[in-house]
Design a binder for these strands. Sequence first.
DNA 1: TTTATAATTAACCATATGGTTAACTTATTG
DNA 2: CAATAAGTTAACCATATGGTTAATTATAAA
Lengths: 122, 122
Amino acid sequence: MVNYKDDTLTATFHALADPTRRAILARLAMGEERVSTLAEPFAMSLPAISKHLKVLEGAGLIRRTIDGRVHQCRLAPEPLDAANGWIEEHRKIWRQQFDRLARFLEQTSGPDAPDNTKKENT
Amino acid sequence: MVNYKDDTLTATFHALADPTRRAILARLAMGEERVSTLAEPFAMSLPAISKHLKVLEGAGLIRRTIDGRVHQCRLAPEPLDAANGWIEEHRKIWRQQFDRLARFLEQTSGPDAPDNTKKENT
DNA sequence: TTTATAATTAACCATATGGTTAACTTATTG
DNA sequence: CAATAAGTTAACCATATGGTTAATTATAAA
């Protein structure tokens, strides 16, 4: 039972909860990039990207080195490890609990019993 | 390279980016609970919890069975698998890239070279 | 049938978020 | 030095978020 800092997790998950930021991270996974290059693929202004980068940096997911007027961004894997740790830890228990419930339903009602799960609205 | 639905990930990460919701999920990992029981530990109103549950349900992280006037909540592990998948997939590449950079710095500047990493503002 | 319980919905509020354009700072280059 | 380029900061705006209290719905119990 590792103890994950609450605000670290919150910041990390919040940073990941945006498609633009995830795309930036995915791109950075292929190597360092400067801000303007990172901004290119997106249909939004540079200041918008600048803000996204600040969120990512605030969560510790990226770091930047300033070289003249060029800001080079690169990934920092630590917070992702924390997020991953939290998910991994819980996922196991959840699976167990989920499967235990499934077996319980199998046993009590049998495989031919009417479907008692809630309808999905996928 | 699995293809994760963008909005599923966004909804999942957003749902996880709140300490109250994570606490609810952690509690549900120990077994099904009704809404009022889930609300007890928190210093906030029932409607607030109700909203949190709706967010979790919207992200597919929990399901509920309505039994009379009692709503039983339980976990649904699928979206967490997706989130975990995204993180896992990227984390590997990030680590590689990170370690490659570290080795590169070792080689070019040597172990005794001056520290060229940016100062942390922890 | 009246009353109490479980939970949601409605209406509202303050603050956060994600975007914009314009202005600014700091380097680089002619 | 003047002009350009990289990027951030400032000011602003619309919408989303997370909370509140009051009202509402639906079930259970007296």
